[in-house]
């Protein structure tokens, strides 16, 4: 474990989260589940970005990535809010929360 500092560890954790979120995005068909996956990918990217800027322990975390990440977190919430509203409206009209092109056999209805 020589040379593994806190920042690099969390950056790799972020890389893992990008992979997990991407899988959730590909494997899940329910649009709310995809939205959860989208947020996991997003926070994984933030963690890679922010931790990369915090590798110099003598300087402390870089404020510029921190500011960009805070902006990113707010924009991710705004995106999620718009997509939640779209999913609910779509479900009201279509009676399901999955897209037709994602349905090989069953269409999510009973």
């Amino acid at each position: 474990m020589t040379g593994l500092d806190t920042a690099t560890l969390f950056a790799w954790c972020g890389a893992g989260l990008i992979g997990i979120g991407l899988y959730g995005f590909l494997a899940n068909r329910h649009m709310l589940r995809r939205l959860v996956a989208f947020n996991v990918v997003g926070s994984g990217i933030f963690l890679v970005f922010g931790a990369s800027g915090a590798r110099r322990a003598d300087l402390g975390p870089d404020p510029v990535p921190q500011a960009l990440i805070i902006t990113g977190i707010v924009v991710a919430l705004a995106t999620t809010a718009l997509l939640v509203a779209l999913v609910i409206r779509y479900a009201d009209l279509a009676g399901r929360a999955t897209l037709p092109e994602d349905e090989p056999g069953d269409d999510g209805k009973e």
């Binding site: 068909r29 329910h30 709310l32 939205l35 959860v36 947020n39 926070s43 933030f46 990440i69 805070i70 977190i73 707010v74 991710a76 919430l77 999620t80 809010a81 939640v84 999913v87 609910i88 479900a91 009201d92 009676g95 399901r96 929360a97 999955t98 349905e103 069953d106 999510g108 209805k109 009973e110």
Partner: peptide
């Protein structure tokens, strides 16, 4: 920001959406 927005408000938004879809009788795939 992550605790308040990423976990807090996003969480409320998603919990509300799950409840709303259930009320609308949407079945999970």
């Amino acid at each position: 920001a992550e605790a308040a927005i990423g976990a807090g408000l996003t969480g409320v938004l998603l919990v509300g959406a799950v409840a709303r879809l259930r009320r609308g009788g949407v079945v999970e795939p």
